[in-house]
Design a protein around this nucleic acid. Structure first.
Lengths: 178, 178
DNA sequence: GGCGGCATGTAAATGGTTACATGATTAC
DNA sequence: GTAATCATGTAACCATTTACATGCCGCC
């Protein structure tokens, strides 16, 4: 069996936690998550869940809601095993992944000081806002995760800003400022 | 003109900084970056650069290295404009993006305490290692960015660990520990 | 009883990955 | 002089996105 992709793992984990659950509900929750990295579109989620079911990681049960057919999914034993292998993969977990902010900050030297200043201001405001907004959940663990994450992100950004702008100052100003 | 993807932006930025440069060099630098999110494979980079050139964001010049043909690229004026629009997009920049660690931590309740403990240990070790390894560059700004980032990531992880394990303790132990 | 939006999908386009191909160059 | 590796790609595959299709439900 080939390894789960990260999206497959995330969906499997959602089903493992919330199941029995429909593909529609998985899509909606994904779409509502704090990151915009996965859109949670039907076009992604329905085929993905069908693939997982074909691999026997999910078992489906047909149900009827009045006149509308519905398919509910839960993890199979195999599915739970695959989920754990994905979840507990420390090497994959500790990669940096993709951060649109980091990706841009690396190249900040390619714009003028005023452009940079304006950008840093805007970003700081958006990060502050994110840090002030609780996660869309009532699970205290997820709230804590989101809070520590957004706060750490903001602190990191500020630390970088300090270092970066310190480097902008010519040496004599840096000395004079002591 | 449609918006640049993040990978297109990152490649444009590399060319803007290092140009004139070949597709091969861009691919190699991408492959050597600290994140494994983009593989930097020829199959991704060559077509991407061809697309950017077709959109007139790059200008190419043919050169000869002994017997081997080579194509060098630099930004056009349009290309620099597009790069800045991508680079200074504060809204896209402040999204969380994709973090394989965050994606997993959200679901840590789905494994046993011992599995979780082992995982957290392994991850902590890997993050410590990353924080102790300087970025593969000699640009002091990038070094600083990488250092603040890896340190912040480690601090965030530890903060989460503290909160999470505090929640594991039954109330009387939490009180007794005062 | 018609209309907005809910629930369930499918189709085409896009963009990245792995794997392969091919000729030039370097190391031994 | 031949094996490894560099440099330049192309091809087949795969996952995700946007856009579309369709029938059901609740509401006015």
């Amino acid at each position: 069996m080939t390894e789960l992709t990260d999206f497959e793992g995330a969906v499997l984990a959602q089903i493992g936690h919330g199941g029995p659950i429909t593909a529609y509900a998985v899509a909606k929750r994904t779409a509502a998550s704090t990151s915009e990295f996965w859109s949670g579109s039907a076009g992604a989620v329905y085929p993905l869940i069908q693939r997982l079911a074909a691999r026997q990681l999910l078992v489906s049960t047909e149900a009827q809601d009045g006149k509308r057919a519905r398919t509910d999914y839960v993890l199979s034993a195999e599915g739970r095993k695959a989920l754990k292998a994905w979840l507990l993969d420390a090497h994959r977990a500790s990669d940096l992944g993709f951060d649109p902010l980091r990706t841009r900050l690396v190249h900040m030297d390619q714009c003028s000081a005023s452009e940079r200043k304006r950008f840093m201001h805007q970003v700081a405001a958006l990060l502050e806002k994110a840090a002030g907004t609780p996660a869309p959940t009532d699970d205290p663990r997820l709230l804590a995760l989101h809070e520590t994450l957004t706060r750490a992100r903001l602190e990191w950004f500020k630390a970088f800003e300090r270092v970066h702008s310190a480097m902008d100052e010519p040496a004599h100003r840096r000395l004079a400022a002591r």
